[in-house]
């Protein structure tokens, strides 16, 4: 579904290489996990896929269903079904969460040649989604991420994901900073959103999330590359040995 081929990328401003020959294929209906030490480039990779111009692809390609996405801006990638739940979601003061969601939803409707959803119908829809995800409805009228705790921000990302129903969902450490109940809600949410037609990429440090959402593939990322791909047993092994142990064993 999403194919990354020998990708090299730098920080635009300093031309520092971060992604150094990365290969990765996300399959429809599957859940992929990426694990890797701090600073290995996981967030950079996820933002590159979403179209962050802080980073520049110097060679290689990212394709969605066989089509290169490199020329598309972030908006276009989102409209084509790519979604990133950010590790550090941004605050936008004065913009109500529900209005933002409606704007994003209707942008997608428009792109697909559909009518915008009636505001009242959309409000009902939002309330349902909140219920499914055990997210308090008070989230909706708050300003976008403003004054949200770290955990609330992560859950708000999941709310957006559930409303926009992307084909490729990348979750960058959505589990970090969540208490155990919130983690379970997030895991339940991910499981309920899983479809044969979409794919999930979970970036995480912890085995913990993966016990609630069983990944089909686990990829280990180090220094800008995927160095190993396996099934969930890889995650368990890693949990025992740590990254250092993993490196010396190789």
């Amino acid at each position: 579904m999403l194919t990354i081929n020998q990708l090299h990328a730098t920080i635009t401003e300093t031309e520092t290489p971060i992604i150094k020959g990365l290969d990765l294929t996300l399959e429809p209906g599957k859940i992929h996990a990426i694990m890797g030490p701090n600073g290995s480039g996981k967030s950079t990779l996820s933002k590159l896929i979403a179209g962050d111009e802080q980073y520049t692809v110097t060679s290689g390609d990212i394709q969605l269903n066989g089509q290169s996405i490199l020329e598309w801006d972030a908006t276009q990638r989102a409209l084509m079904g790519i979604f990133l739940a950010f590790q550090y979601p941004i605050e936008i003061p004065g913009v109500p969460n529900d209005e933002f969601l409606r704007m994003a939803y209707n942008a997608k409707q428009k792109h697909q040649g559909l009518e915008p959803m009636d505001p009242l119908v959309f409000q009902d829809h939002l309330q349902n989604v909140c219920q499914q995800l055990s997210i308090p409805e008070s989230f909706l009228e708050r300003e976008l991420n403003v004054g949200f705790s770290g955990g609330e921000k992560k859950r708000n990302e999941l709310l957006q994901l559930a409303v926009l129903k992307p084909a490729v969902a990348i979750l960058d450490e959505t589990d970090s900073g969540l208490d155990i109940d919130a983690l379970k809600h997030v895991a339940t949410g991910i499981r309920s959103l899983r479809q044969p037609t979409n794919t999930f990429l979970l970036i995480t440090h912890y085995q913990r999330l993966l016990t609630y959402v069983e990944p089909d593939y686990v990829h280990i990322m180090m220094d800008g590359r995927i160095v190993e791909t396996g099934d969930k047993s890889l995650a368990m092994a890693l949990d025992k040995s740590g990254y250092d142990g993993f490196v010396s064993a190789r």
Binding site: A50, A74, T75, A78, A104, L164
Partner: peptide, 8 residues
């Protein structure tokens, strides 16, 4: 980028 990454 945050808003654009939602299709806006």
């Amino acid at each position: 980028f945050y808003l654009m990454s939602r299709g806006i």
